[in-house]
Amino acid sequence: MFSKFLRQSHMYLALFLTPWVLVYALSTLFMNHRARPASENRESEAPQTAWVFEQERILDGSVNSAHGVLVALELDGPHFVNKPAVDGSITIFRQDAFRPRRVIWSPLLHKAKVERQDFHARAFVERLHKRFGYGSTHRIGNIWSAMVDLTAASIVFWAVSGVWLWFELRALRKWGLVFLGIGVALFAFFVVTI
């Protein structure tokens, strides 16, 4: 009974979370084969993260918050804000899985410049991979984080339940143990040596 429950949970959870697993697998491949680390990427060399000018507008003088700026620009949605620059301007990052934008807002001049990143499949999956944590300005950001939590917990569950289900298959025990031993030995070797 317990094994049946475990087997079905293992399978149905995996089917439900298939899109998340695909995103994490593909983005890991992309990030692992990046020519150079992200921190060394210059915008001119990385078209997928280059900011493209979209519009510049003078806002109503009553606008006095990042949220207000986004509402005025009809760009309301999950965002975060950097510390003000020396000239008092504030950069608002409007998160978006497909086309993120940044708004450089000068409260003194009431001016807002909007730039965006164009869609690139690689940047899209990498953005999803790196999007986590609660405290988003909008509920959808926290829902995504809950799904990230569910995926992480499921990864641990698949590992544990997978070992249980394997151990029940007597015919596969010997070779399973060999593969497990190889994996553990390789992992331990790398932990100690690098």
Partner: peptide, 25 residues
């Protein structure tokens, strides 16, 4: 067998990625 043995050999990485993801969040 592919599904099971692949899981067994990569189990340490799978556990590490799962637990560290929880740690990140």
């Amino acid at each position: 067998r592919f599904h099971i043995y692949l899981g067994m050999v990569l189990l340490p990485w799978f556990l590490m990625y799962g637990l560290s993801a929880v740690t990140f969040v």
